[in-house]
């Protein structure tokens, strides 16, 4: 999967940071949307399909752990990468409980971030493809009409973003 096809959601209350981070990622070819609060981030997740969400832990209002939790409820395959200036082990542990893909410290080495995003996206498509296959098998073995099956598989394709 090329960077161009990777959709990244940046969530951080530090506006200047996400502004420049977005610019750099865009230049790398990622599709990027940046938001400054958990609330907006969830709206974005509802509206669009992202591959990776980069989440800051310490944010006013909804914190990073909760954002992760809610994202996972909506989009189980969306991978989250925690990016924090607070090197707390407890935070890392809590993120881990929300099935974070990786835990990165600010300021992050740009190359490391880019690689992480690619790996996370690959994980997402692997997980969703696996799930898609499982469900496809379920559908094809459920005994519906061929047209019904085709329709349902198409819906599934859309759901898991498989072209």
């Amino acid at each position: 999967m090329s960077s161009r096809e990777i959709r990244v959601l940046l969530i951080d209350d530090e506006e200047e940071l996400i502004e420049y981070l977005s610019k750099r990622l865009l230049k790398e070819g990622f599709t990027v949307r940046a938001v400054t609060s958990g609330k907006v981030a969830l709206e974005a997740v509802d509206e669009e399909d992202f591959d990776v969400a980069v989440v800051d832990l310490k944010m006013p209002g909804m914190d990073g752990i909760e954002v992760q939790e809610r994202i996972k409820q909506r989009r189980p395959f969306l991978q989250t990468v925690v990016l924090t200036g607070h090197g707390s082990f407890q935070a890392a542990l809590d993120s881990g409980k929300q099935d974070a893909f990786r835990f990165l410290n600010k300021p992050v080495d740009h190359e490391e971030l880019v690689n992480t995003l690619r790996e996370a996206a690959a994980e997402k498509s692997r997980e969703s493809l696996a799930r898609f296959r499982e469900e496809t098998i379920e559908i094809t073995s459920s005994g519906g009409t061929p047209r019904d099956i085709v329709q349902r598989v198409e819906a599934l394709r859309k759901k898991y973003g498989i072209g």
Binding site: Y20, R24, N105, K106
Partner: peptide, 10 residues
């Protein structure tokens, strides 16, 4: 780390 991250990104 936060301001440093901003500096770094810019």
């Amino acid at each position: 780390n936060n301001p440093l991250a901003v500096i770094g990104e810019i």
